[in-house]
Design a protein around this nucleic acid. Sequence first.
DNA 1: GCCAACGTTGGC
DNA 2: GCCAACGTTGGC
Length: 137
Amino acid sequence: MSAARWLVKSEPHTYSFDHLVRDGRTVWDGVRNNTAALHLKAMRQDDEVLFYHSNVGMAVVGIAEVAREAFPDPSDPANRFVAVELSAVRALTSPVTLAEMKATPALAEMAMLRQGRLSVSPVSAAEWETILRLAGG
DNA sequence: GCCAACGTTGGC
DNA sequence: GCCAACGTTGGC
């Protein structure tokens, strides 16, 4: 069974992909949306994750992977939400911008495009390949 | 800075 | 259980 694929958003001011590369690995906490939390819970070890910079950059900039499956979010006092750990895999050769993604028919059904505010979303195998192709491999 | 799209909260 | 008010995210 092959690994699943996801996309996570982060504002580069808050936590950039470069920061993840420096850290090697990080706790992905602070998600406070039920739909996003469901996706976090569905993540499995070694699933692949696109790392998207929201607001500034507005592009997929790198690839990460799931280093630890869902556990109670240490930043949530109510203990309702979960976190995962992500580790850096590599930066994309060239970032894939939101504008490019919107202009690509093969990505029209992508969860992150259909529901803009969702901070953790699934990516199909075909969408993954399309984005990597746009990134220059 | 504005606003659309969602989620959540709380009064009833 | 409905819905108005409010808060947040994130593109523009």
